[in-house]
Design a binder for these strands. Structure first.
Lengths: 191, 191
DNA sequence: GTCTATAATTCGATAGAC
DNA sequence: GTCTATCGAATTATAGAC
């Protein structure tokens, strides 16, 4: 378990640096500096910089996939399914905003083959949300409109919470954020 | 004017490539390939890669600054000011989604001094939107709530339209998009 | 696992001829 | 303005000793 502890420490620092700099600007040299070891030691934990990116990206993608699958399989109404999606994003953002930053912005640096796999999964995720929107319109709980457009509005609202510097606001707790975000998406800003 | 025509062609290709690859991954070599000239020719138009980034970023920032200043100085109600902000973003996104992608994602690669200037302007922009939200709550046209949170929700909804591949949807026109976006932000998705 | 040393590429930018 | 040629710096990754 000693090795796993070291690898977890490595992944923690790698996630933070990758989020801070972006894939291309992050260097193995700087990562080694933060780990307080030589650059060559990094290759004890990972085969290449590309493999590190791949590992982190699909780790997060898998969590989203499991989350949305559970929601899809539930007997919730469309509105409650949408609320569960919002909850999923808020909780993952609170857990680690850096991971969500990476998930949103760094996938384009994957090798061509893996990028295709990643985008297929992301499209599958978005399709499941579109289905929720569609079903909600069908049973008149959502306003009728263009499904893809509403799906994009919802995703934009929840996808970029990582950039809100949530951790710096100590008075903000995830439950309160979840409530406010749900209220915004369901009923907007107007009184 | 011949030189300006060439420089404009250069800026057009540079904007597209910078948006596609990101600052660090964009190379002067590839830009030269797309321009069908040698790498060294690029330096006829620009002093350095950093200067190119600076030029493009502050060009867009200035447009947003002028837009929000006009809205701020108007006699519109808070709701109409918010609608005008949404209109500003929709129109600029339609005009050139690549420029908005750069504006949102590439500023972190500015040199330290210029990055500070950029972030000050962006904060000033966001403060003006927060003021609109605050005034709207004051006169009971907006629901009361945490101003910064609502400001972030609004900005998330409109800031990432560049990633919706708007240009590929020929049936979508900016006026229709503006109407739908306004409806989402003002009153949400619920029936 | 840790280090030193270095190979092999790639990049931004410049010099200088035409 | 265009090109050829090239410099100097930075990068990922590996070899091999301890």
């Amino acid at each position: 378990m000693y090795k796993n502890h070291k690898k977890e420490r490595f992944l923690k620092f790698a996630t933070a640096l990758l989020s801070e700099k972006g894939y291309k600007a992050m260097t193995m040299r700087e990562l080694a500096q933060r780990l307080d070891c030589d650059k060559s030691n990094i290759y004890n934990y990972i085969k290449s910089k590309q493999e590190l990116l791949d590992l982190l990206l699909f780790d997060i993608a898998d969590k989203f996939h499991r989350g949305i699958s559970d929601i899809e399989a539930s007997s919730y109404t469309p509105i409650d399914k949408l609320k569960a999606v919002i909850q999923l994003h808020v909780r993952m953002t609170f857990e680690n905003p850096d991971k969500l930053n990476i998930h949103v912005n760094e996938w384009r640096f994957l090798d061509e083959d893996r990028k295709k796999v990643f985008l297929n999964r992301r499209n599958s995720y978005e399709d499941k949300i579109a289905t929720i929107v569609h079903d909600g319109m069908d049973n008149n709980s959502f306003k009728t409109g263009e499904v893809q457009f509403i799906k994009n509005c919802i995703l934009s609202s929840i996808r970029w919470m990582y950039s809100w510097n949530i951790k710096e606001k100590k008075d903000l707790n995830p439950i309160e954020l979840e409530k406010n975000m749900t209220d915004f998406i369901l009923s907007g800003v107007m009184a």
